[in-house]
């Protein structure tokens, strides 16, 4: 990998599973390089085989530790695994510290596992902008299961549910009462609920709260025939993972159908259009004059934004 290898030439190396080519292509997807866009398009058309699992939950709920153990168990069943671990970018410097790998140390030497850390770079839904391009690259590279671990999320970052085949929401004991469990947002998107750290005494309470919520008819993930199970696990005591793997397989068989694929495609399409449109809009935009007007209270945000959009439209007709 000495000289610059053009992106379209990387594709065959990716298909034959060459780690360096996979890694390099991910870097280019992340950089949003125009040179790579065509190759990423070709990769998209070739992808579509892997089971894509999203793992989300609040910071410190045990996502990385769970992913480490889950991947280990899936490997024992002979499946190859790629992990995309997302951590936040600094809102000030744009830099990041990506530390999810630390908890996945058991997997590193296994050639059937590929781990990539990513920063959010200002994306707010819990994922990085190009995370799905990265998933396609890993899919074409032949990994059977691709796990996306989102940043530690709050109550409202639900983008993963539009992008993954199966969404696992990890809750940790001791973080809230049953009212937290009936609120809108993150708990609603789960195809599978996991309560982590079940070696702790207060875990039963958390399990009960979630089960009650589901019994009350709240928190269904919008699919009639699928009832999200609540699974207690302990990475420490190595418990609950068989149930989780069974639930993942059951969800894949029953719910990853053409409708689900179309929903994901719909999300991808509007996301891509949004990205390109925003890029063009920002390149065109000089908001200084409008911002000064706004600061001086000589206009209001909506009218000024509307007139910017009008200018943009006129420019493009």
């Amino acid at each position: 990998m000495a000289a610059y290898v053009p992106s379209h030439e990387l594709i065959e190396h990716i298909e034959s599973g060459q780690t360096w080519a996979i890694a390099r292509m991910i870097t280019r997807a992340e950089a949003g390089a125009t040179e790579a866009r065509e190759a990423i398009g070709e990769i998209y058309r070739k992808a579509g085989r892997a089971h894509i699992i999203g793992i989300t939950g609040v910071p410190g709920s045990g996502k990385s530790t769970l992913v480490n153990k889950l991947a280990e168990k899936l490997r024992q069943n002979g499946r190859t695994i790629a992990i995309v671990a997302i951590d936040p970018s600094s809102p000030y410097s744009g830099g990041s510290i990506l530390g999810d790998r630390i908890r996945m140390a058991d997997l590193v030497l296994d050639p059937g596992v590929f781990i990539r850390s990513m920063a959010t770079r200002g994306a707010v839904g819990g994922m990085a902008h190009c995370a799905l391009d990265v998933v396609d690259i890993l899919d074409v590279a032949g990994f059977d299961t691709i796990i996306i671990e989102t940043v530690g999320v709050g109550q409202d970052e639900v983008e993963i549910a539009h992008a993954a085949h199966t969404t696992v929401v990890v809750s940790a004991p001791g973080l809230g009462d049953e009212i937290q469990a009936i609120k809108a947002g993150i708990l609603e998107i789960a195809d599978i609920h996991v309560v982590s750290k079940c070696d702790r005494g207060d875990a039963n309470r958390c399990l009960t709260d979630l089960k009650m919520m589901l019994k009350d008819g709240l928190g269904s993930s919008g699919i009639d025939h699928w009832h999200p199970p609540v699974i207690g696990i302990s990475s420490y005591a190595d418990e609950g993972f068989e149930a989780l793997i069974e639930a993942l397989a059951a969800h894949k068989d029953s719910s990853v159908n053409s409708q689900r694929r179309e929903d994901i495609a719909r999300f991808r399409l509007s996301k891509a259009a949004e990205t390109l449109l925003l890029e063009e809009f920002r390149n065109f935009l000089d908001i200084t004059a409008s911002a000064q007007k706004l600061a001086a209270r000589k206009g209001d945000p909506y009218s000024l934004a509307l007139s910017l959009i009008e200018d943009f439209k006129n420019e493009n007709t």
Partner: peptide, 19 residues
């Protein structure tokens, strides 16, 4: 390095050269 805008992956302690 984070504050200089870089993406920093940290390995954690006690790694081998191969890892």
């Amino acid at each position: 390095l984070r504050d200089a805008g870089m993406d920093v992956v940290y390995s954690g302690l006690h790694r081998t050269p191969e890892e």
